[in-house]
Design a protein around this nucleic acid. Structure first.
Lengths: 199, 199
DNA sequence: CTATATCGGTACCAATCAGTACATATATAG
DNA sequence: CTATATATGTACTGATTGGTACCGATATAG
């Protein structure tokens, strides 16, 4: 065991609390007072454990991508066919974005869509994360095309961008109060379109 | 003419400047210093002419909806057929969201997607505006259905929500750096899907 | 002309922001 | 036991937030 007085809180546990606050209020909309109150620790403990507000956000984002909704995306990519990937992706998004246990919408979309100078680097980080997911999806579609699972005339890049666009739109819809059923209807409509476009 | 010293700036002109700043940085990300600097007036003049930050935002939003991109939406709704409405809506959105003269994306989406307590009422205002546009679109589709322009099995509500979802997703894409061509490809894909779903 | 009403600019307000100095408390290492 | 290392809580920092009091300037009304 290490020297010194031991920490009196569970780091992952309070990180989840911070994640929840950032998710709900965005990066700029969250103050350190909001964070310390929700996390149940005081300011110097927060700084000692997580660095500063920006680093805390990044750690919360990592957790979001790893244990939270991000895990759902990775599972979807593992589906055997492109069609199954998209279906799983859209359906899971509809569920996840409206999960009553979490704030509505997606942290990677709402965390810092537009912001002042101070949050600029956070905004760019979120852009990169979204772009990375889009690229992973594109790669998955390219594989599907190579496997003959998608037609020769299909365009993996446009397809990936389109699916991302629908998911991101669903996030805005969720933030506006759309229900799980509403989003499932959107997902169905997008899926019908894709199935038709493929044939 | 009225008594007193006349205002030395054009109200609409400086309101456009304010609109631009809010559009780029969002409501919370914009400080009064940002505004006065961009508008070229000092603080008391701003308060005398526009009330306060929140009222200024609302007036900028009205202008956005009236003279800005909002006008494009109204034009699209006037198209003769549902298909033409959607096509015009998506294509115009792609152009508008990536117009180099404006910040990328849509003010009604990025202005305050998630935020702290102070901006809560702005967030709700934006939600209501988005919902109102969605409802206008739904009404347009209901008319199209009554006119036989849309099939009997079509669902105007889901259709409207789907189109709004795509447009809102395109706004997120634009904020992330997507080009006009990128968004046109998305629009084409959404349109192909709808055409197929209709048949 | 004088009286009145509004505008513009300086210089301020209290509240809040993110971040920290410092003293005290509590653990291990020897 | 003592020495050391880390955590906690109070109370603070300077900078910035949105918002104003006040005064001189500039217009019209009579």
């Amino acid at each position: 065991m290490q020297k010194g007085r031991p920490r009196e809180f569970d780091k992952e546990q309070v990180l989840d609390k911070a994640l929840h606050v950032f998710w709900e209020r965005g990066y700029e909309g969250t103050s350190l007072s909001d964070l310390t109150e929700a996390m149940g620790i005081n300011r110097p403990s927060l700084y000692a454990a997580f660095g500063n507000k920006e680093e805390l956000f990044r750690q919360a984002l990592d957790r979001y991508a790893e244990k939270g909704p991000g895990a759902v995306y990775r599972e979807a990519l593992a589906e055997p066919t492109a069609k199954a990937v998209v279906e799983r992706l859209l359906k899971s998004s509809a569920d996840c974005l409206t999960d009553p246990a979490n704030p509505p919408g997606c942290l990677a979309v709402q965390g810092a869509l537009s912001c002042g100078d101070a949050a600029e680097s956070i905004k760019q980080e979120l852009c990169q994360r979204r772009a990375r997911v889009e690229q992973e999806l594109r790669l998955r579609f390219e594989r599907a095309k190579a496997e003959g699972d998608l037609g020769r005339e299909s365009d993996p890049e446009s397809l990936a961008r389109y699916v991302m666009t629908v998911m991101q739109g669903m996030s805005v819809q969720a933030a506006g109060g759309a229900s799980r059923a509403d989003l499932h209807a959107v997902a169905d409509m997008a899926l019908r379109g894709l199935a038709a476009a493929e044939s």
